[in-house]
Design a protein around this nucleic acid. Structure first.
Length: 442
RNA sequence: GGUCCCUUCGUCUAGCGGUUAGGAUAUCUGGUUUUCAUCCAGAAGAUCACGGGUUCGAAUCCCGUAGGGACCGCCA
């Protein structure tokens, strides 16, 4: 049997590190098993869903290299849901309810205050035909709940092991809203059946929901989906990752110039027993993926980890790999420039700063004028190479008697305006004799 | 309040009855780089949440407690 997994975001916001981790796990699981990975857009709620977000989600996946074998929108399947709903109606597994949201809300509060179970009391089940007719003539439209029969649902979770949920502690789920829109619990079950999904891998927040869905799928068909629930990621503060928390959205990482591979490396290793390290490529991530290594206890994610991985990645990049990107930043950046400066970058775009330092035409004010003047008096003739700096500074040392920091720091500051930076023996080659003579303000 | 899950160095984790409790990251120190980063070497860091039980022996099995997480929507 072909393994089929899916990632089913609702296009109501940007996806973040937590969501994308779920997507990645599903994708990896499919790839490792030579299976199929489906992207399903859960957009039945037209008011909250936007095409813009759906596009952004696709763009994020695409950017990260998480490709899908198939994609579809739930909004294109309303007829299918209607048919499936009729099936449940025919088998007597759904019932019409006429409470308003406010009434249900009040009921819940009452139950909560009384310390009892906050579970729907199924009072709609006791409605007579006359009462229903009265509601209808009042203009009320019913919403429909699924009647759960089982006491308990058990399954063998691929990650958490044997799970057993008390179904009586859960409300009969609403499948169809009063406005006729089918809800997630229902559409997801239908789609998982129709698209022959074999493995549903998702966050721990769905665990109790899974019991409901198993009951529902069994009412429609026969459930032989293997479920797996991974622990949720927490922010480094211990708070939950919020969808509205812009700083952890994939889009924001892209805007911060993080590399996809750095993000994937982090996501593939955090909350697992794998070493947190930069992976060579996506193939290595696939090769090393084992779903059993994913932890079931909620773990904190420290944002510094991503920065460290990204830095490591940038510094390992060869000129040939990013020639085109550098071209777009500044066409004057050549191989020597890249190799000289990359050790001081955290992101590829950081190179702008060094390009500016090297290429700008501004004068640099020098504090130690006398010393620098002496240094320039023995500036070597071009051509310059790797050894020029050493030879030159040896001469300056001889001339001035300075050594160590006293010798090197003033020169670095005079030529670059910076206290730190790439090795001077490289930098002076990038600058060249004329530029050094011109920019120093003495 | 109910249901389900979790608890080992700062952080992510290995561990399946007998280990000096291992690794990765972060931290610190030394070396390299006459800077920073990298790299190399080393160090420090965990009363295995707590209490009880089972056992010759428990991080590991059982019970309880505490703490954390998730869910309990006409959201997904």
């Amino acid at each position: 049997m072909t393994v089929i997994t899916r990632f089913a975001p609702s296009p109501t916001g940007l996806i973040h590190l937590g969501n994308i981790r779920t997507a990645l796990i599903n994708w990896l699981f499919a790839r490792v098993n030579n299976g199929k990975f489906i992207l399903r857009i859960d957009d039945t709620d037209a008011e909250r869903s936007t095409k813009e977000y759906a596009d952004k989600i696709k763009h994020d996946l695409d950017w990260l290299g998480i490709n899908y074998d198939q994609t579809f929108d739930q909004s294109s399947r309303f007829e299918v849901y209607a048919k499936r709903f009729q099936q449940l109606k025919d088998s007597g597994r759904v019932y019409a309810c006429y409470e308003t949201s406010e009434e249900l809300d009040r009921k819940r509060k009452l139950l909560s205050a009384a310390g009892g179970k906050q579970v729907y009391d199924r009072s709609a089940l006791k409605l007579t035909d006359q009462q229903k007719k009265d509601y209808e003539s009042e203009g009320r439209k019913p919403h429909w709940r699924f009647l759960m029969n089982s006491e308990r649902i058990e399954w063998n979770d691929l990650l958490k092991g044997k799970i057993s949920i008390d179904l009586t502690s859960l409300s009969d789920p609403v499948l169809i809203r009063a406005d006729g829109v089918p809800l997630y619990t229902f559409t997801s079950a239908v789609d998982d059946i129709d698209y022959k999904v074999t493995n549903v891998i998702r966050g721990d927040d769905h665990t109790s929901n899974t019991a409901v869905q198993i009951e529902l799928i069994n009412a429609l068909d026969k459930c032989d989906i293997t479920f797996a629930h991974h622990a949720l990621l927490q922010a480094s503060t211990g708070n939950k990752l919020s969808k509205r928390d812009g700083v952890i959205s994939i889009e924001s990482f892209r805007e911060q110039n993080m590399e996809p591979l750095a993000i994937l490396s982090l996501l593939a290793t955090i909350g697992t027993s794998n070493s947190i390290e930069l992976k060579k490529d996506i193939k290595q991530i696939i090769d090393e993926f084992k779903i059993e290594t994913i932890s079931t206890s909620p773990g904190r994610i420290e944002t510094d980890l991503l920065n460290a991985l990204n830095k490591k990645l940038v510094q390992s990049l060869n000129f040939i790999d990013i020639k085109d990107r550098l071209e777009r930043v500044d066409s004057r950046i050549d191989e020597l420039f890249w190799n000289s400066v990359k050790g001081n970058l955290s992101t590829v775009e950081d190179i702008k700063k060094w390009a500016d330092i090297v290429f700008n035409e501004d004068k640099i004010d020098v504090e130690d004028k006398e010393f620098v003047k002496q240094a320039l008096s023995v500036i070597p003739a071009e051509p310059w190479d790797e050894n020029t700096w050493e030879a030159w500074t040896a001469e300056i040392k001889e001339l001035t008697g300075r050594k160590g920091k006293e010798l090197f720091l003033p020169l670095r500051e005079a030529f670059t305006g910076m206290k730190h930076g790439p090795e001077m023996k490289q930098l002076i080659q990038l600058l060249g004799r004329e530029k050094i003579l011109n920019r120093v303000n003495i």
